[in-house]
């Protein structure tokens, strides 16, 4: 693809996503301020600490992302990124970008000693996708437009609604690029639609 994909670069595993995109031949850059969102074709919200990232994003950046969400802009959130994109967060009154109609439970997989890696079956990608879960959030409710793409022990850990993709786990910590490629295809389709 020709466009550039941004990676929200306030805090967290920013470099890993940029490396994964570069390995797929896609231009990528970190974004720390609202004006740096201009000209992007899609945005990845990486893993990190969601409370810290949301504070750093403050009013301006979050408001702008919420606006972009309403226009169908392609987002991909991993772990903390999924929390930022969710419509509702369990035990918390306010959510952040609200671009995908799901409810998430933070730290659903428990403290770090319960973090794990496994192999998942992902709808449309394969039954051998390596997945690293770190103090991971799970999806506990999905709106009617949301399609579950992967489960772990019954819990939904990957889903999509329109142009928004979310995972509980970290594809950027593995060498497997299929989930990033899947998102790039979403971005390409969106660009085609916008042009028409």
């Amino acid at each position: 693809m020709e466009g550039t994909i941004g990676v929200l670069g306030l805090q967290g595993a920013v470099r890993e996503h940029i490396v994964s995109l570069s390995r797929l031949g896609v231009a990528a850059r970190a974004v720390k301020k609202a004006e740096e969102l201009d000209g992007l074709s899609g945005l990845i919200l990486p893993g990190g600490e969601s409370t810290a990232i949301s504070l750093l994003a403050g009013g301006g950046l979050l408001a702008r992302l919420r606006e972009m969400g309403r226009t169908g802009f392609p987002f991909f959130g991993t772990c903390a990124g999924m929390i930022l994109l969710a419509r509702e967060i369990e035990g918390q009154e306010e959510a952040y970008i609200r671009a995908i109609d799901i409810t998430v439970a933070r730290n659903a997989s428990g403290r770090q000693v319960h973090s794990f890696e496994t192999v998942l079956s992902v709808d449309g990608i394969g039954d051998d996708v390596p997945a690293v879960f770190i103090r991971a959030p799970y999806i506990t409710r999905m709106g009617p437009g949301v399609r579950p793409l992967a489960r772990h022990e019954g819990a939904v850990v990957m889903a999509r609604e329109g142009n928004v993709l979310v995972t509980s786990f970290h594809p950027e910590l593995t060498d497997d690029l299929r989930i990033h490629r899947y998102f790039i295809e979403m971005v390409e389709n969106y660009e085609r639609e916008v042009r028409q």
């Binding site: 967290g12 920013v14 470099r15 990190g48």
Partner: peptide, 17 residues
């Protein structure tokens, strides 16, 4: 659980913090 990737992975998530 407790693989090196899982252990170092949490530290990766703390970067920039």
């Amino acid at each position: 659980k407790g693989t090196f990737r899982v252990k170092s992975g949490l530290a990766e998530m703390l970067k920039g913090g």
